[in-house]
Design a protein around this nucleic acid. Structure first.
Lengths: 197, 197, 197, 197
DNA sequence: TATGAATGAGGGTTCATTCAT
DNA sequence: CATGAATGAACCCTCATTCAT
């Protein structure tokens, strides 16, 4: 019967949601498993039926939340009129930066690990696949071909994520405002670099 | 009397050395203050005369060890014959990657925080200054001028550090071997971008 | 229907076998009911249909395994040619010591509780009876009569079991090798003591 | 300064006393470290400065309390008029049985481990030595010599301890009352056995 | 300044037991 | 009868921090 299965999924979901809320609110260090299960209205022992420890749930959440950010941005792009590939990627970067600026706690939580959502081996789930599909669709629309799309996307993501983290959270080396135009130029020069002649 | 001063410096040094050893050996989480003071042959209470907590000593160490990596690379470069600016930066990147590959524990410890060695506000010490001076010397030698050297260096460092961490530690998205040529092309395209016309 | 009965017996047997294996392998403390049912491929709740708790199954196992050791030794004796009563008991002791030396985990598990196999009130099962019968047969064969056979057997068993446990497991006060001749002399003097005039 | 040292000894003593009280009152399984420290008015963490775990304190206590029983009995003997060696040992056994009958909780706690007080390697402390000295004094007074005094004492202790435990706690195979005369005869026959001609 | 024994809150984790299926 | 997910009390133990010396 699916009832049990359903219940299990719900429990898992509740743990993930509660953990994310607490992690972004109080930080990972100061969030205890007790906090998480209390917030999720689940027994403490039950936590261990779903996750090995606090760090497993954190890693899973980084992947999920990172993927969500990328997905949202891609979907926003697909709603837009067609534009050049460079502009499309800049548009994406712009969306990601906006989302992070609107949700600094999320950025603080994801830290510089946005790319694990796409490239980490342990993350074999659908989130990853959905993002990869969206990226492929964007490339397709551009009609261009690239030397190594994975590495290209990886570098762009790293550059965007790093600058967001440092400029928004640490406010160093400069503010995000000041960084933004430089970042866009940098991304453009990177993309050109990856086009196959 | 300078002897007391000396002794204090030695104690501080011992704590830093021991902490670094243990952090790289067992990880930060699993290293306790007890471990650190035991290894440094110092009393537990004394720790608190020098550092607020484990995370203060960690942050200090990331800055010190990061700066050391950059410094070493810069000094190696200054030993070389003159070369073009692009080649000089590639040479630097190459040195940094080599150092990290030779010392994965150090990379694991520094994680994606290499740039704090140079750009973090809280890091007001000499390490930072030495690195900045070295960078300035390199630029000087090139005879070129750049739109914003800080941001340029920041981006290159982030790109090198990120790819090292992901490719060497996580082996994703590709191996460091495969990443290296792509990284160099990317760095070159970035640098050109920053030259003032 | 006997099939259900059979199945129940098999389950019980499986639990006993698994528990014994784990108890001797990892110790009683470190063996959990979860471990036992997992090893027996039985559901957790089912355990409680057969035993009250871990200690009930442990006590049952000590009785069973203790009885098995004594039985084996007695049967070995009955295979031998006739010999004097003293020699017969020494032969038995010898067999028991050998069995324990070959299976230290079993000795460690039974500890100093070998006699419960025969004399514990709660142990009302067939194992006990089989051993008692074998002892009676041995006495019968000897043609002798004794003041109190039960106490005599009890003392011999205690002496053999204690020395085995201390000398084989703890290696104190001396090795089993050194203890053996002394033990045999002691047993002989005990037996003489119990003969009715 | 001895003040700190003194305090440490007192703490250790308090832990031992409290643990013994609770072990004999509620059993080892049902006594928690929390119980012990609470009863001793000591902080939980402090327990671990003195003992590794509950089982270390238990083992230490078995040795201490076992030694105390033997010591008391020996001292009672030395108060008596001279008597034959056999009678002296019977007197000792008698005292031990009496002490155990008066304090069944203590017997239950020591279980069949009385001899570890004297023969366990890990127990290197003064308790052991005091008992050994007392035994030597008794032998000296008897003017006799024995083949192996250690093994002799060990066997007598084991026999007394085993019968006490089984007859007093388990009331099997017979009551202590019924066992006592048989035990004395057995001890006597054992002792004769060990005399060197 | 330096010490390290003492603290005790609260961390993670276990596991016997229950009970709806 | 059998199941096994869920429970949650209770466990052990850690360890940052204090403070009398």
């Amino acid at each position: 019967m699916g009832k049990k299965e359903d219940n299990k999924k719900k429990k898992r979901e509740a743990l993930l949601t509660s953990a994310y809320l607490l992690f972004t609110e109080k930080g990972i260090q100061r969030t205890t498993i007790s906090d998480i299960v209390k917030h999720a209205s689940i027994a403490k022992g039950t936590f261990y039926l779903y996750f090995k420890d606090k760090y497993e749930i954190r890693d899973k959440l980084i992947a999920i939340r990172g993927a969500r950010i990328i997905e949202k941005s891609c979907l926003a792009l697909l709603d837009e009129e067609e534009m050049s590939f460079e502009d499309a990627i800049i548009f994406l970067a712009d969306r990601v930066i906006d989302l992070f600026e609107q949700n600094k706690a999320s950025l603080s939580f994801i830290s510089k690990n946005l790319s694990v959502a796409l490239f980490n081996r342990s993350n074999t789930e659908e989130e990853k696949n959905r993002c990869v599909e969206l990226f492929n669709k964007i490339i397709e629309r551009s009609g261009k071909t690239f030397r190594d799309e994975n590495i290209m996307f990886y570098m762009v993501i790293e550059l965007v994520n790093s600058t967001c983290y440092d400029c928004i959270i640490n406010k160093a080396p400069v503010s995000m405002e000041m960084m933004r135009p430089e970042l866009y130029k940098a991304i453009k020069s990177l993309l050109v670099q990856f086009e196959s002649e």
